[in-house]
Amino acid sequence: MERAYSLWEKGLSGSHHVWGKVELDQRGKVDMKVFPHEKYPFLNKIGKIFGIGHLDQQIRILFNLRNFDILYSPYSKSNTKLLLFLKALGLFRKPIVVTIHQPFWKGKNENKFFRSYSRFYILNYTASIFLSEPLLDKTIKLLKIPEKDYRNKFSLAQWGPDMTYYERYCVKRKSFEECDFFMSAGHTDRDFETLIEAFRGLDYKLKIFCTPKSVPKTLDIPPNVELNWEVTLSFDLIPYYQRSIAILIPLKYPMYKEGCQGMTSLQDVVSFGKPLIMTRNPCLNLDVEKAGIGYCVDMYDVEGWKEKLKILKENKDIWNKMSDNSELTFKETFNSDIFAAQLEKVLLSVYKDKKE
């Protein structure tokens, strides 16, 4: 997180990647400090042996209990496993507030022991902020959590992009005539293979930005598709976002893993006032078709992708309307200020309960 904050300070990344800290600093009611991520790497190697990620950070937190009132962890399970275990034993008494953007059950909810374990796990957090109402509802239903147990623990917050991007990029977006390619960037659960097949034979250009681990397995890449796994910083991607016709979010995952996949890329869609086409994901809080900012296609649907690509490439009026709606969505319902307001409300409520 300190790297994300450092990138924001240098103007290389949006504040939303620091998950509310920047906006809370500006609001002035909550003093949030970024706890260093790693100091003793060997502890993390030991943690991996026992299935505990980020053990180094968690141990150092135990030696800094006097320096904070609430522990806020935007990635919940990934770096709170030890602390939550100690909390269950009554040995860690600080409140823990987390955001939830992925499912807790991982397809094993029919196993009574696993379901009980998952329910016990999530209810040990002092407060859980879900980034999607469908994900919240799904969690309650699949883990069979009684209302009395989650009523004062679960809440919703719409995570959205840095509002400073609005004037900088969204309002000053390029015209339809200035945009000459489609682009897709990301790495989690991406289905670049289906996307490449959709562009095969089309007279449109596609630029894919991925990581070395998410490079598509397709061997015969058509000449109109360009792969890049070297450009990874948000700042370096800005010129490409500005000149893109639309942002494409192809996804693939088993249904038990269905969570908020594609959510980070949605930040880029509205930040630059762009239309989008994405694989349908009912767990996201933003219904892109209802909001009028883009189209959804079914998983692995090559023909569906081709159909929607042609519409956006050949219909300037539709493109302009979706771009306007994307900008409006950013301004009114999907931004960092809205997220920070809800986060602040939760943190202040937890702090009040702690003092009482």
Score class of each variant (00 low, 15 high):
249 I>G: 07
106 K>A: 11
108 K>L: 14
306 K>C: 09
64 N>A: 13
340 A>V: 02
86 L>N: 00
328 L>C: 06
255 M>C: 09
51 G>M: 02
181 F>P: 04
48 K>F: 06
26 Q>W: 11
309 L>Q: 04
79 N>F: 07
243 R>H: 13
119 R>A: 08
270 V>T: 10
284 L>Q: 10
31 D>W: 11
45 K>S: 15
350 V>F: 12
315 N>W: 01
296 C>Y: 05
236 D>R: 13
145 I>M: 03
315 N>R: 02
99 T>S: 14
69 D>P: 04
10 K>H: 11
350 V>S: 09
299 M>T: 04
81 K>W: 09
170 C>Q: 11
165 Y>E: 10
26 Q>E: 15
213 K>D: 07
147 E>R: 14
207 K>D: 06
52 I>M: 10
96 I>D: 00
269 V>N: 12
189 D>A: 15
96 I>W: 01
107 G>K: 04
74 P>Y: 10
304 G>P: 01
207 K>V: 03
41 P>C: 14
147 E>T: 08
166 Y>H: 06
255 M>V: 14
179 C>K: 15
159 W>I: 11
47 G>T: 04
70 I>V: 13
133 E>P: 00
346 V>M: 02
91 L>W: 02
84 L>T: 08
53 G>R: 15
325 N>L: 01
153 K>A: 05
266 L>V: 00
356 E>T: 08
320 N>M: 07
128 S>N: 15
93 R>K: 14
195 L>S: 00
237 L>R: 03
102 Q>D: 14
100 I>T: 09
245 I>D: 10
337 D>N: 14
307 E>Y: 07
128 S>M: 12
341 A>H: 09
290 K>E: 15
24 L>S: 01
184 S>I: 03
188 T>C: 09
235 F>L: 13
65 L>Y: 06
121 Y>P: 04
233 L>T: 10
40 Y>D: 07
286 L>W: 05
215 V>P: 02
203 D>Y: 11
116 S>Q: 14
337 D>V: 11
149 D>T: 10
37 H>F: 13
137 D>G: 13
251 L>E: 09
167 E>W: 08
125 Y>C: 03
228 N>P: 08
58 Q>M: 15
28 G>D: 01
21 K>T: 04
92 F>H: 09
322 M>K: 05
44 N>K: 10
278 M>A: 09
197 E>M: 11
245 I>C: 02
188 T>Y: 14
183 M>L: 14
77 K>E: 12
38 E>D: 08
334 F>I: 05
348 L>G: 08
56 D>F: 12
266 L>S: 04
100 I>V: 15
322 M>V: 01
266 L>Y: 00
331 K>H: 04
158 Q>M: 14
318 I>K: 13
228 N>M: 12
217 K>Q: 11
157 A>I: 08
73 S>F: 07
258 E>N: 03
155 S>F: 13
241 Y>N: 12
62 L>R: 07
115 R>P: 01
121 Y>D: 01
91 L>V: 03
187 H>S: 12
335 N>K: 03
36 P>D: 06
175 S>M: 08
167 E>Y: 13
260 C>W: 05
260 C>N: 13
